[in-house]
Structures are given as C-alpha cells and as structure tokens.
C-alpha cells in the first residue's frame, strides 16, 4: 500500500518558533502548509516535534520560498503517506 501512496513532505525545524515563522511566510505567499507532528522515524535527535506538512505539488515552490526568504529550517524529508483515514483528514 505504501508504494502506491502519495508522497508528503515534512519540513523539520529546530524549534516551534522557526516552524511558525515559516508557516506565516508561506501563508502570505499562498502556499499551503499544515502544522503536523513530526513522524518519529524521521525526527532524528535534533529536529523539533512539530513540522510543516507540504503536499508534493507545492514542495518546489516552498523550497524556493525558503531560499528566497532565508528561512530557518532543519531538513525537508519525503515520506509516503502511511494512513488513509476515512475522511482523508490527515494525509
């Protein structure tokens, strides 16, 4: 199932403040990014428990925005969507 799942992109941060700052910047630019818990499997030791979840179709624009605005972030990790809940709420 995972092999057929769409990809999500998690932007990881050192802290909430950096994540909220980038979310605000993306919001101003009309780029959708939802705050989500960082999956433990990609969190590592240094990143924060919150991340910005970005759909694949927006990730390149988001990357460009990060570079353009010199936004603080820790990493961007690609991850297949693992769960398909009934209302498609989380993925």
């Amino acid at each position: 199932m995972a092999g057929q799942a769409e990809l999500n992109y998690y932007i990881l941060f050192a802290n909430y403040t950096h994540g909220l700052a980038l979310q605000e910047q993306l919001r101003k630019e009309g780029l959708p990014a939802r705050i989500a818990p960082t999956p433990r499997s990609i969190q590592g030791e240094l990143s924060c428990g919150m991340s910005l979840l970005v759909k694949a179709e927006y990730i390149e624009a988001v990357r460009q925005s990060i570079v353009r605005n010199q936004a603080e972030y820790y990493d961007i990790v690609e991850m297949p969507c693992q769960i398909q809940p009934r209302r498609n709420k989380f993925c």
């Binding site: 941060f13 050192a14 802290n15 909430y16 403040t17 950096h18 030791e45 240094l46 990143s47 924060c48 428990g49 919150m50 603080e72």
Partner: peptide, 17 residues
C-alpha cells in the same frame, strides 16, 4: 524541557528555545 530535540542531552542551541 523544551518540547523539541528531546533526545539531545543538552539544551537546544537555537533561540528562543
């Protein structure tokens, strides 16, 4: 407690955390 970087032995170095 910082809510972030929980497996780090030291306080996260980034401000404001």
């Amino acid at each position: 407690g910082s809510g972030v970087q929980s497996y780090s032995r030291v306080q996260p170095p980034q401000l404001p955390t």
